[in-house]
Design a protein around this nucleic acid. Structure first.
Lengths: 229, 229
DNA sequence: TCAAAAGTGTTAAAAATACACCCATGG
DNA sequence: CCATGGGTGTATTTTTAACACTTTTGA
């Protein structure tokens, strides 16, 4: 107990809502708590902010420690600070959300976690603390974001088909999109580059592969647009 | 020094970017610091979070203590936590922004502040800490918000003219809008109620007064819309 | 009678939506 | 030859954008 202050201080943590996309679903990465409180419950990866690191650094550090993920796209979501959100003492948490593609990033459970696993976004189990509320906010934010910024880069493999991209948008928005209108729209946005390459090993007509034009994608990210879907 | 912890903890503060509208400009409320560091400099109203109060409660308490404002519309903006943002020690601040109408809310300087004053949003002086950055984020957020949620309720007097409302949008967006298109659009949104009352004491044709339909305004706030301007 | 702001519609361009069939491939 | 997903265009409706003059009022 070496650190003394005139007034009591809330503890400060970060938590990460990590979204990933596989062939079927939009998923959320959870860890199983190895300690009290809520031992054995699923929760968001996260932990205490060190006094010399930035909030984002703390989020990246905890994410790597607990799940092995690194170099992910990360953005601050919201800060949750209700006095009773942690039964032990006052804890304020700065929530981040991350987008990763499940092919390139592999997950392993580590410190403080018995296990790490992906859950389809609509069937997340009961979570520790107020983490369910945090996941809901993150899903809502992602839904907003997708309408005015491209997000595919972070969730898809480097080369992908238009159908994969459409499925991503459908999962995030939670509703079906018209194939032709989607293609028209997304191609007019001008950050997609059609490759001379086709899908392999599929038991039906092979789809053309695309990749993002990094430069134009970045512009679209900073300037924003209206996807109108 | 009664409060002791195993690990060092960042201090946690809240800061408020308060926007107000007068006849001319969109303004930001600043206080002049009475203490070190940055004594004499202008800064955002704000202060330490007490250990038993929520973040929003802390923001409201500080706002009232330092400026006398209460019952304002308040929303969380972003949490700023770079390790060097305060020269004394590590301080993480949860920033909020508020919208108030200058007719109904009067400001007085109080504790910790020599003075409180309104500055036109484009000519905010050099501020303490990273508060300039916080003001910029808040202005950017307000600009986004205005496109998909009504904000007039909070910034205008209860009865107002369409020209006042248009001026508000022009100030927030930083560009002129077409009068006829604006009126068409805003009236089709259906949360305005035309009154049988006219402006008084103006030296030109009196404009019709409007007020917000609280119910529909609330729906528009929660559901969102696309103002398309 | 002048100044100052209020109020009012139309047209053209662009964007959004709805919609159905043929194609290529592997099993 | 069949099942599976890939790929494509047009017509309609809706939305946006551009634009200028007449009215009212008080000074």
């Amino acid at each position: 107990m070496k650190f003394k202050y005139r007034y009591p201080r809330p503890a400060l943590t970060v938590d990460c809502v990590v979204f990933g996309l596989d062939d079927k679903d939009l998923k959320v990465l959870l860890i199983q708590r190895a300690r009290k409180p809520f031992r054995g419950r699923w929760a968001l990866p996260g932990g205490f902010v060190h006094v010399e690191e930035s909030l984002e650094d703390a989020a990246r550090r905890e994410l790597e420690e607990e799940t092995g993920l690194r170099n992910v796209y990360l953005e601050q979501l919201y800060t949750f600070g209700e006095p009773d959100r942690d039964p032990r003492e006052r804890v304020v948490t700065v929530a981040y959300y991350a987008l990763v593609n499940l092919r390139d990033h592999h997950v392993r459970a580590a410190t403080d976690a018995r296990e790490a696993a992906w859950f389809a976004a609509p069937d997340v189990p009961a979570l520790a603390f107020d983490h369910e509320k945090i996941v809901e906010s993150a899903a809502a934010r992602l839904k907003e974001k997708v309408r005015c910024q491209p997000i595919g880069f972070e969730l898809l493999p480097p080369k992908f088909t238009l159908t994969q991209l459409q499925r991503l948008y459908e999962k995030v928005l939670g509703r079906p999109l018209d194939k032709r209108n989607f293609r028209k729209k997304i191609q007019s946005m001008d950050f997609l580059e059609a490759l001379d390459e086709m899908q392999k090993d599929v038991s039906h007509r092979a789809a053309r592969l695309y990749r993002f034009d990094k430069r134009k994608y970045g512009q679209a990210t900073t300037k924003g647009f209206n996807l109108g879907i």
